[in-house]
Amino acid sequence: MIERDTLLYLDGVTVSFDGFRALNALSLRLNEGEMRAVIGPNGAGKTTMMDVITGKTRPDSGQVVFGKDTDLTKLDEPKIASLGIGRKFQKPTVFEPHTVWDNLLLALAGDRSPRFSLFARETAAEKRQIESILETTRLTDQRYRRSADLSHGQKQWLEIGMLLAQEPQLLLVDEPVAGMTDAETEQTAVLLREINQTRSVVVVEHDMAFVRALGVKVTVLHEGSVLSEGSIDFVSDDPKVIEVYLGR
């Protein structure tokens, strides 16, 4: 493996809500082009970590550096998104009244200003890009369906497709396979690996089989900080991890 540049660096990030420490001096480093799985029991701070990275929550202390020297803690959500960080939510949130096509169209990278969008027309390039994403996410046949009418798994894929349309450098994916059938889960793993060819990915997941299938480095969070880090086999043998998951 060649040594690559750091893409995302969290250093001593602490977030507390009413005295409860959701993140406790969390530090984490992600390399460019890397895929990382983040696991941990409920309340370990996985979603809060994503909130901090995407600007939804401001940390009480600590640094979040993206790329060379961009401090994300000073920026708001749209700014961070336009820097190239995409996020998929745990509960699929697509724009339900819109068709699959329109969802992707709105997600496509480009001018986000109201003035542009008022007079924007679909270009051939945009059409090509949407077609290709439809292909990737296996939604070609569903393109004109209202996204509200999609199955749960299809909505998850559509949301991943919208992430792709944003052309981000880094994808944050929260529980992508929750509520999916086994077949869908398998396909999702393939899809994520495909995406990882060109982009960095952080996957938060409960499903151990899925994490194993991804075959990437795993970070275990517990009570807001990193408990263990390494391959899936390494962390599942780690006594600290066993204690947290199984108790004594």
Binding site: T54, K56, D76, E77, P78, A81, S82, G86, R87, F89, T93, F95, E96, P97, L106, A107, R112, M162, Q166
Partner: peptide, 11 residues
């Protein structure tokens, strides 16, 4: 419908 979602798309 989902205002907060649009922010994460960069809008």
């Amino acid at each position: 419908d989902t205002e907060s979602r649009t922010r994460f798309l960069g809008y």
